[in-house]
Amino acid sequence: MIGIFFVALTALCCLIIVALVAVILGDIAWFGWGSLNLQFLLTAPQQGMTEGGIFPAIFGTVFLVLLMTIAVIPLGVMTAIYLHEYAPRKSMVIRWIRLAIENLAGVPAIVFGLFGLGFFIEFVGRGIDRIFLDGQLAFGQPAIIWAALTLALLTLPTVVVATEEALRAIPVSHREVAYSLGATRLQMVRRVVLPQAVGGILTGGILAVSRGAGEVAPILFTGAAYFLPYLPNKLNDQFMELGYHIYVLATQSPDVEKTKPILYSTVFVLLVLTFALNFTAIWIRSRIRRRLRAEK
């Protein structure tokens, strides 16, 4: 009797969650679909954002995420390779480093934003201006490069963890075979480990991108602009971004009612973008799992 009750309860909880997701998605799709068209995707906001499209925000998001990826993948992959292939296995220091990386994943995004402001803009950016540009203001202000680097820090744990997971999945015997055939450690990593880890690294990269693409807090102080009449084309330009644009539309518009359809469509675009990335990651991962299983 209690058993049946418990099953029903757990099933109900599941149902509530599914219903919630369905309502949210349905709502966004229903209202977002209406004003969604090519025009919307390819033009800039007009009339104080009550009309026009979101092209600069899409462009800025893609540019931002691209820069972030270029920064986070090498850093994350090298970190994971050091931790898994080079570092002494039982070292206390290594254990702390790993713990620190995992904890990094739990740090609130706004803290990353403040860190980016303090470290990248105030320290690194101002430093560059002072030393290389005679104090002329160029990098010591919010810019897409600092926002991208801040996001890269935020998503670093994702890449490190995914890469390490991929490295762990490679049988020790493959490494020993490489050594026994006279490979140095570098040759072993390059010829045996990396080729097999590519899928995992890719998954980590995509997950990082889909996480990074939706975060607003880290870019708030580090480079996102409320509105820009031009597209960013230099590393120290500011930029518009989808998540931030949504925030702006929802809270700063002169006519909230009039912007509502645009707001819905923007949310819809952002969701589709992140979902697509997530599904790609899941798909790649399942393909790799299947291949690994087939080989055993």
Binding site: H174, E176, T184
Partner: peptide, 27 residues
């Protein structure tokens, strides 16, 4: 590295690398 090349080892279970036959041999 030189020692490992002069003293070859074959493992108890087959350990092909996930490569072609050619690339395994050429490794």
């Amino acid at each position: 590295v030189g020692i490992r090349r002069k003293i070859g080892l074959v493992f108890p279970v087959p350990t092909p690398l996930p490569l072609s036959i050619f690339d395994n041999l050429a490794f």
